[in-house]
Nucleic acid binder design. Sequence first.
DNA 1: ATGTCC
Length: 472
Amino acid sequence: MASAKLTAKDLLTLGFPSGKPVTIALQLIDTYYTDLARNHQIELLQDVLTAPEQYKLQATLGPLAQAILTQKSSGPIELKPGKQKFAIYGGENIEGGALHQMELAMRLPIAQAGALMPDAHQGYGLPIGGVLATHNVAIPYGVGVDIGCRMCMSIYDIHTGFIDKNQDKLKKMLLDNTRFGHTSFKRPMNHPVMDRPEFSELPIVREMKDRAYQQLGTSGGGNHFVEFGTVEIHDVNNDHDLPKGKYLAILSHSGSRRLGANIAGYYTKVAMDACQLPPDAKHLAWLDLDTEAGQEYWLAMNLAGDYASACHHQIHERLANKLTEQPMAVIENHHNFAWKEKDATGKEVIVHRKGATPAGKGVMGIIPGSMATPGFIVRGKGEAASINSASHGAGRLMSRTEAKKTLSLPQVRKYLQKAGVDVLGSGLDEAPMVYKDINKVMASQQDLVEVVGTFHPKIVRMNGDEKYIEVD
DNA sequence: ATGTCC
């Protein structure tokens, strides 16, 4: 009898090409060879792998042999040789790994143009802070795991002193009306996005519907937050007729939760099966938008984006209800997404922004700093070289593990106290000092955006034990 | 980012 069941990982270790050969091999074992001892199962599969020609006409092992042969004969897609040009902003403070990933992405045969934002750092496939324009293909890892990760700010005609006078009340308001990480609301509010046909039509999305409903109106972990702060409007040209002045604002950062993560994971695998790239570029696998899988991904990605937007709107709605006020303006934008846009010559391109703020001419957006440094309301300048994009934040200076190793709670509490910021939840890995200087980052993208308003966080809620960083 | 391994 077989002992430990063979897994995909075992087969990859044996040198099976990922994708169809692995899938078929596991199916064959499950269907015909469950009685065979594990080592004999492995021997059998290895025989087919080393000499697929001898097995290709066999009834049972034929399909596996064929899949291996197809993979071998097609070979990986070739990358363009040499360095391709792309614009880099704030390059003196961008890590080598992110730069290398962007250089690699530019060599894809489907790459039309690219740019690297000043907050860039290494990710899977495209770097975070990477922008890539392609023609009629979508790269799931060019969008990222958290599809539709976005910012939303509501601005209230409430004087800023209200925050200091109502500290405890506002803290409780955040604790009662936001949920982070693995927690969710006992009774989620419904939202029209849950009635979208994609929830019944796309298999991978259908499986996620219950979880998506459960997570409606919640925020994620890591760098996600909901905070009260003050915003100063410097420029009346702001799309919302906001007069110059100081206002109370609520700012949120979150994405599409488990729904988007599963969509990203599933379609990345589909892409990697359909699009074989050299090993170091494999996470940049794409889906042709004329194929069924490509169209499915496009629909699912857009759904995840709308779902993420719905989550933010519910967060802001809950808080607006408690404040018994309606905002004067709401400014929001995705920063992990792909859009159909026109390039300078009028040709339609798919613009992937993985941790980048849309900054077309006149387009409003939000670029946050950290829990204790300013964030900015910006208006895009429509700079073609940046593919109408800007950074999505300050960018990390220190890894999470390094932060936990080198920083201490008293040190961070002192910093927050000095900055006059209250933090509920979070941890050392999100401390302000793990991020680049947001003012320098903004300075390096003056050609990309104009600053319309400056936001200062005052009461911040993030994932984790509410008492962890709390300074009071 | 994510109940972080198909």
